[in-house]
Design a protein around this nucleic acid. Structure first.
Lengths: 346, 346
DNA sequence: ACACCCAAATGGAACGTTCTACAATCGGTC
DNA sequence: GACCGATTGTAGAACGTTCCATTTGGGTGT
């Protein structure tokens, strides 16, 4: 809150105004403002004081225009996904201390990925971080040719050249969940899958191989689901009505699991008394005392950190070459899993 | 996807490159690119063709630097609030067709409003749209002095000069909910409030006056709550344990109501059999078939539209002078409300 | 005293646009 | 054939910053 509102003229104060005020050249004022070396402590203080007086703020656009580096990371995210929100939070936390700014571009019902990416490119981002991108591999390849691109949570096979991938070992997570349930004594374990959502294929595969490894091939049962509560609820209806009802369910994610829980509770099927439920993500939702969901935790801060780190690494030219960072998930046991009460139907 | 990847040199193509390619001056190329008049149809086509060939995209930063207008609206939003996500979606939908770009800046646990606004100012936004700002009135006043500012969902009393407010008539919404419950035959209606969240005071007041108007002053009961599921659950525990248990509850918002529902269901208190529950917001959550929550709907698209409209109006100098836009809410009756089963305790 | 050197400071040219002149071209009219 | 207005086009100066190459100035070392 400057005492002197601004420069005499109504316009916003510029570097030249600041320089005049402090009695130095614009170049020197610039040096001081961006904390570069080349100014004495005395002048530094004088310039900063002047900046405070006139309420000077550097113009980010002009700065970025001139400097070859923009130090701007473009992030595309799904506005309606809490998982993305958590990731963005982590991305801010890593990027800003590292001296990078974040430009957000949301994907919504009326605003596709194409448009989201276009605005980011127009803003001259140096690299792109795409959260769960659905775009075809060809499009991603094209983008990766233009600038460093990091795909978070979207597993691409075969790998796209030049595209960094940061993801959770979804198959491993599904396996952990199955192992846990089997250890509790469950045999009839069903999986509500995520269709073609990013990661769904891996989780499905992890579930299948884990079941086989435990000799439960005949109990494998995949019910089509999705990533929302409604889709989970729908799948739960199917399961509740099925005759040899499974004693445990692995849902695609926490939102899906919430829908499942709700249906079971309303149908008078106690959880975990009659059936155990496991989610995926360890979102805020799962942690709530009254939901208390056993779930497979994704290390979101680490995913976010890696995504930023990979982007910056590419920008700095330190290319690790691996191209894929896989983060281990960890099972979080809470209150929705317990040993089966009766012998499972065979 | 340009056949020729870019300009010979590895750099991104610039207006000069385009002009050279098309055999015109940069000025004319500029005219064509921004669709201004002053170019013949023939050249226009030729330039556009060249642009396509070399994959030219105007540099937003340079453009904004030069033109006095930036056509950029800064939006501050809470990354974890679904309500804000919906608003942002609506804001995009109104702003982009109107020729304005959106710069998003998120408020998170580790990134306060102050920082969020600072980055927006550095980006030279022309106006600010703040979703549910918590900043002190003094800070908002200061901001409003610098550029047009629209506060969405935060009701300021006394009005801050120069600050536009767009909000729902929260008091009216609470009244509609109470009226609905009373019409069903309820008398002991409790309110779980939102503390100092934006809008909470108005809803509380609306609840109180509606109760009084129905002669139910002695049944007024406000339980401290909040805007999350956990806070709703906590309040529900209190209500469930209280002796003359209310027959209906008006929760601060849908998330809060979800927590309430969950606790009641787990405690074996049927909804709406033993107790009716009303939410607020009509979020996606409430609409899910298995939650099916009676709630007070906020007209989010309209709020978003008005927010953008007010900002643009101020920029265009058409100042309506009113400074406050109040949108009517509407009750959405679903499955969580019904007549009380027994006579309410007096 | 001399060259020498490093820090402190500066002038001016970028960066990629748009904007404000102004110049050229072209029918058409008197 | 000179004049005109409208249309098309161009040159060059902004915009606010950072980078580069230089200049200044006061110590050192010999």
């Amino acid at each position: 809150m400057p005492a002197t509102p601004a420069v005499p003229d109504g316009k916003r104060p510029t570097l030249a105004d600041l320089a005049t005020r402090a009695g130095v050249s614009t170049a020197l004022a610039s040096i001081v403002m961006r904390g570069a070396k080349g100014a004495s402590a005395a002048t530094r203080e004088r310039v900063l004081e002047a900046a405070r007086e006139i309420g000077y703020r550097p113009d980010a656009r002009a700065r970025l225009l001139r400097s070859h580096r923009s130090h701007l990371l473009g992030v595309q995210f799904g506005l309606q996904h809490p998982f993305h929100a958590d990731l963005v939070e982590g991305i801010y936390a890593t990027a800003e201390p590292a001296g990078y700014q974040i430009a957000l571009s949301a994907v919504t019902a009326g605003r596709g990925e194409q448009r989201a990416v276009e605005t980011l490119l127009d803003d001259r981002c140096e690299a792109l971080i795409l959260l769960g991108p659905q775009a075809p591999a060809s499009r991603l390849t094209e983008l990766a040719g233009q600038l460093p691109v990091v795909s978070v949570a979207r597993h691409l096979r075969p790998p796209v050249p030049g595209l960094e991938v940061v993801r959770t070992a979804d198959d491993k997570g599904a396996r952990q969940a199955v192992d846990h349930l089997v250890a509790l004594g469950h045999r009839a374990i069903a999986h509500i899958d995520g269709g073609k959502a990013p990661g769904a294929a891996d989780r499905r595969r992890g579930y299948r191989t884990a079941m086989s490894r435990h000799g439960l091939t005949e109990h494998i049962r995949v019910v089509p689901g999705g990533l929302t509560e409604a889709e989970g609820a729908e799948a739960a209806q199917v399961l509740a009505a099925s005759h040899p009802r499974p004693t445990a369910v692995l849902a695609f994610n926490d939102r899906c699991a919430t829908g499942v829980l709700d249906v079971f509770l309303r149908s008078g099927i106690p959880v975990p008394g009659a059936i155990s439920v496991v989610g995926f993500d360890d979102s805020h939702l799962a942690r709530l005392a009254h939901i208390d969901l056993t779930t497979v935790g994704q290390d979101i801060p680490r995913l976010a950190h890696l995504a930023v780190d990979r982007a910056i690494a590419r920008l700095d030219g330190r290319d690790t070459g691996t191209g894929e960072q896989v983060v281990a998930p960890h099972l979080v046991v809470r209150g929705t899993t317990a040993p089966p009460s009766t012998a499972p139907a065979t």
